[in-house]
Computed example of a mutant assay.
Amino acid sequence: MPRALLLIAVLAVAACSGNERDISMRDLRSFTGGPDEFSIIPGKELQTPKDFNTLPAPTPGGSNLTDQDPLGDAAVALGGRASARQPGNGVPAADGALIAHAGRNGVPADIRESLAAEDKEFRRRQSRFTKLRLVRVDRYSQAYKRFELNSQAEVAWWRRQGVTTPTAPPAAR
């Protein structure tokens, strides 16, 4: 009996670990003991530049010409521009009409900060008992399940409204 009380006391103290707990809910660590082959991104091939005077100045800790940019490469492959991901580029002129239409009813100036604070509070509430799991689980998908979009239901709703829609992905089995 005293061992059971000791175990309950230890679990209670662990559950009250305070505000410094991890609220990310993602557990993507590999438990195989081997290397994580997806964390290694090989550099691009070295090439001799046409003009050595046009090379950018070295930036210690920054990026260089041989660094891979998987997200930028994906953006280009999908018809976009890799430079759109860089901060400070603003909205392209071609997207001005879209931005104007999306903000026609007004946009709060602090929308990003407000959403970040709300999401942090949501993750804090959802991660209350994540440390008390016997098996490591990625709780992110469980926590955000009710916000998941159902493409089949959306297509059906729009079709009932008389809107012509493209086909949706097949339903998951």
Rank of each mutant, 00 (worst) to 15 (best):
M1C: 09
P2Y: 09
P2Q: 01
P2W: 04
R3C: 09
L5D: 07
L7T: 15
I8Y: 05
I8L: 13
A9Q: 08
A9V: 12
L11N: 07
L11D: 08
A12G: 13
A12Y: 11
V13N: 10
V13G: 06
A15Y: 11
C16I: 14
C16A: 15
C16P: 06
C16D: 06
S17D: 14
S17F: 03
S17H: 09
R21Y: 00
R21C: 04
S24I: 10
S24M: 07
S24Q: 09
S24K: 01
M25D: 00
M25E: 01
D27S: 06
P35Q: 13
D36G: 04
D36L: 06
E37N: 09
F38S: 10
S39T: 02
I40T: 14
I41A: 10
I41S: 11
G43C: 10
G43T: 12
K44W: 06
K44D: 15
Q47D: 11
T48E: 14
P49L: 03
F52A: 11
N53M: 14
T54A: 13
P56R: 05
A57M: 11
P58C: 00
T59R: 11
T59N: 14
P60R: 05
P60N: 08
G61M: 02
G61F: 03
G62L: 12
N64I: 12
D67A: 15
Q68F: 09
Q68C: 13
Q68Y: 08
D69S: 14
P70N: 08
P70A: 01
P70K: 06
L71C: 12
D73T: 10
D73S: 03
A75R: 00
V76F: 00
V76A: 02
A77S: 09
L78M: 07
L78R: 07
S83R: 01
P87R: 03
N89T: 11
G90K: 02
G90Q: 01
P92E: 00
A93P: 03
A93D: 06
G96T: 07
A97Q: 08
I99R: 11
I99C: 02
I99P: 02
A100F: 03
H101R: 14
H101T: 14
A102I: 11
R104S: 15
G106E: 09
P108M: 13
A109H: 04
A116T: 14
A116G: 05
A117I: 11
A117T: 12
D119L: 15
K120F: 13
R123G: 00
Q126L: 03
Q126G: 05
Q126N: 10
S127I: 04
S127N: 07
R128H: 10
F129I: 05
F129H: 10
L132W: 12
L132N: 06
R133V: 05
L134H: 12
V137F: 07
V137M: 09
D138H: 10
R139C: 13
Q142Y: 15
Y144W: 08
Y144Q: 00
K145I: 05
K145D: 10
R146Q: 11
N150E: 11
S151E: 00
Q152G: 04
Q152H: 06
A153D: 05
E154I: 05
E154A: 05
V155E: 03
A156P: 02
R160V: 05
Q161M: 00
Q161L: 00
G162N: 02
G162L: 00
V163Y: 04
V163G: 01
T164H: 09
T165R: 04
P166L: 05
A168S: 03
A168E: 02
A168N: 09
A171G: 11
R173S: 13
R173I: 00
